[in-house]
Each structure stands twice: as C-alpha cells, then as structure tokens.
Amino acid sequence: MKLRSLFVFVVLLGETSIAQVSNSDGDEKGINIADLVEMSGDWFIAYRDGVKQVQADETLPAVNEHTSSFVLKRSYFTLKKDLNDVFSVRYTMDLTIDNEGDDAGNVETRLKYLYLMTKPKLHSKLFTSTAIEVGMVHRPWLDYEQKMNTYRVQDNMFIERNRIFNSADFGLTVTGNIGPKMDDDFLKDVNGVMKGKYASYSLGIYNGGGYSGIEKNTNKVVAGRLTVRPFANSLPQLQVSGYFNRGKGNSEFSPDFNQVLGFLAFTEKQYKLTAQLHDGVGDFRARYIDSNDPSRALKNHGYSFFGEYRFGRSPFSLWGRLDEFKVEEIDERTQRIIGGLTYRVNKMIRLILNTEHTTVDNNTEDTYELNLEISF
C-alpha cells in the first residue's frame, strides 16, 4: 500500500476527531485520530555540501565522496494502536534514498519497527512501568541517547556513526523503571528522557544484524542498559548509564562482538551535557575484522562529548559535538568536530545550520548543511 493511500485511509477512518499527543520531552507530537490510532512522522530534509552521508547498515565501504545537493536524509512514518490496557502495537516505515545497485536514486521503503508491546501488571513497587516488545524492536541504547541529543537530523549518534550497531533489530526487549516514577513537573519542564526517579533499565536478545540485515549465523546478541540518578532528590539532572553488547558479528565466520559503554549526562532546561566512552571488540556487521582471518574481530574504542545551550525563551540553540574513534591493528582513526545553530520555528519544525570537520587517517573533509526537521 502506498504511503498516500495509507494516510488517506487513516484520516477517513478517524473521521473528524483529531487531537495532539505529547512526546517524552513534553512537546506535542503525534495525532490521535478518533481514539483509534496514533499517527506521527519525522522528516529530515537538507541541503548538504561535503562528504556523502553513510549509514551504519549500508553494505558498501565508507568512502570520502564529495556531494553538493538537496537530499532526503530520512523519513519515518509511524502508526501506534492500543489494543487494550495491556497490549499495543507499533508500525514504523523508514523512507530513504537507495544508494546501491540499479535502483540508486529511488526512494526506498522498509520497515524499522513492527512489534507487539505488552505492559504486564506486576503489582510491584520495585519494578515499575515494565514493558516488553517482541518483533522488530528498539535496541536498548540509541533511543535513550537520541532523546537527549536530538540532532539525529544532522547524522547518526557516535556509536551508529562508527558502525558499531544501529537502533533496531529483530528480537525481544524488556524495559522498565526501578522504583517510583520521577516527579511529573521535572519530566515536563526539565527532561523526560528517564521516567524512573532512581533507575531505569532496558535488556534484550537480538539476531544481531540490525533491522535491515538478514541473519547470517545462528548466534544471538544480548544487550542491556542500566541508568541511575545517583542524587535523585538533590541533583536529579545527573544521570549515569552503563551499556553492553555480548555476542557475535553477523557473518558466517561469527567474529566476536563485545562492547561496553559508559555514559554521563547532565540535563537542565536551558542546557544539556553528555559524555560517553566506548570500548569493544568487533561490531554488529562484522566489518572490523582481521583481513587474513575473518573470524577474528579487531579491538576498537572511542569517546564522544555533546552539549547544547538554549538562549532563554528565544527559539535559538547552540550545540556541538566532539568524537574520536579508533580501530586497533589497522590504525584507523576518525575524529569529528560538529557544531550548529538551531532555530525552532515551533514545536514541530526546526531549521538547523551546521558544519562538520572530519579527519580520517589525516585526510580532512569539511561538510556544511542546512537541515529542515519536521516532527509531528
């Protein structure tokens, strides 16, 4: 079914009763149609001059190819439906430009999320807001980080940008809080990324190759995140997270894919600061391997810092990011300095002017962009 036909069907189904719903940051996002289905979308459109953008799930090697053009970076279309007070479903289409084969240049459509969620009633004061996703589901990390660093429109987050893993996979994810919910005023006015007052977690088991990768072996990857507020009552803005992957890379040779990640975040209403440190062996698509022995994964490590400052009640924000990533033995080192100025037109539209200075093994490229982000 074409996207246009699906949109018309949903609107007709909902007749005339339409209402806004809110996202986790308190902003209005999504359209509730006659209490039957919730519809939302995210569009990333840009004018880009510089190195061609490379996605983590692309099969072609990353090359420093210069481009200068208007581009559709990504377009997501989501439908959600509550089946009852326990079960719900989600369907998300991912539209992008095909960069490979005879169809290069065409708009390509694929599924990103397609899952059943259940929220069991555990009647526990320790484990609260428990939810289980089954199908094409969220992996435990990137969805969490992207609610603090909201500049996915510019490019992927540090881990995905360096092709360690992506945001979704075939499998099962369990999420929830440890202890009570955070104060509603804080979640609404400051930051709603972690709803647990003291801690939250996400744990799952996955095929390992990502939502766009066919399974090439019989191994599974186990991944998990634990986030805590060490000073929940006196300094709730501070969050500390740990994350891990343990399994095999998605190839017939099954090289190791093991990773640990440490993350520190301080989120105020006017500004956000994050820092992360990654150390691992291999990756989800088995790219970082010994060229003479594809069953042996290579060590890799790196770090990333991000900051954003909002100018009071004005629509302007200033933000920046610093990354470094290295693959051992082949001495492949990538450094990135990213910065930009944001103008928020309203709660659903942003204009983002940014630049990126990237150095890969002493070869430097500068990229300049004007991004239009539409989120509804």
Rank of each mutant, 00 (worst) to 15 (best):
M1E: 10
K2Y: 09
L3D: 01
L6F: 14
F7C: 03
V11M: 13
T16I: 07
Q20A: 13
V21N: 10
S22K: 12
S22L: 10
S24Q: 06
S24G: 01
D27M: 06
D27E: 08
G30I: 00
I31W: 14
I31L: 15
N32F: 09
I33W: 12
L36M: 04
E38M: 14
S40W: 10
G50R: 11
V51Q: 11
V51K: 14
A56C: 13
A56T: 07
E58S: 12
E58Q: 12
L60W: 05
P61R: 06
E65F: 05
E65S: 12
H66Y: 00
T67E: 12
T67H: 05
S68Q: 09
Y76R: 10
T78K: 08
K80I: 01
L83Y: 06
L83E: 09
D85K: 10
V86E: 08
V89T: 13
D94I: 09
D94E: 04
I97D: 02
N99M: 06
D103R: 14
E108C: 06
L122W: 11
H123P: 02
F127L: 15
F127V: 10
T128H: 13
T130Y: 01
G135W: 13
G135E: 04
V137W: 08
P140T: 10
D143V: 09
Y144D: 15
M148V: 15
N149A: 06
D155L: 14
N156R: 13
E160C: 08
R161Q: 14
N162S: 15
N162A: 15
R163C: 05
F165D: 12
A168Q: 15
L172R: 02
G176Y: 01
D183F: 09
D183I: 10
D189G: 07
M194E: 04
G196F: 03
G196W: 06
G196S: 05
K197F: 03
Y201A: 09
Y206W: 03
N207F: 03
N217D: 09
T218F: 03
V221T: 12
G224M: 01
R229G: 09
S234V: 11
Q237V: 04
L238F: 09
Q239F: 07
V240H: 02
R246E: 03
R246S: 07
G249V: 00
G249E: 01
N250I: 10
S251G: 05
E252W: 08
S254W: 08
S254L: 11
D256C: 00
D256I: 02
V260M: 11
F266L: 15
T267W: 02
Y271I: 13
H278G: 08
D279E: 15
D279T: 13
V281N: 08
D283V: 04
F284L: 06
S291G: 14
S291I: 15
P294M: 08
A297W: 07
K299P: 04
K299V: 02
H301W: 05
G302V: 00
F305N: 00
E308I: 05
E308H: 10
G312K: 01
W319Y: 05
W319T: 00
R321Y: 03
R321H: 01
L322G: 01
L322W: 04
E329K: 04
I330V: 10
R333M: 06
I337Y: 09
I338Y: 00
G339T: 04
Y343V: 03
Y343L: 04
R344P: 03
N346L: 03
M348T: 08
R350P: 00
N354M: 03
N354E: 06
E356F: 00
T358A: 11
T359D: 10
T359K: 09
D366R: 05
D366S: 08
L370E: 02
S375L: 11
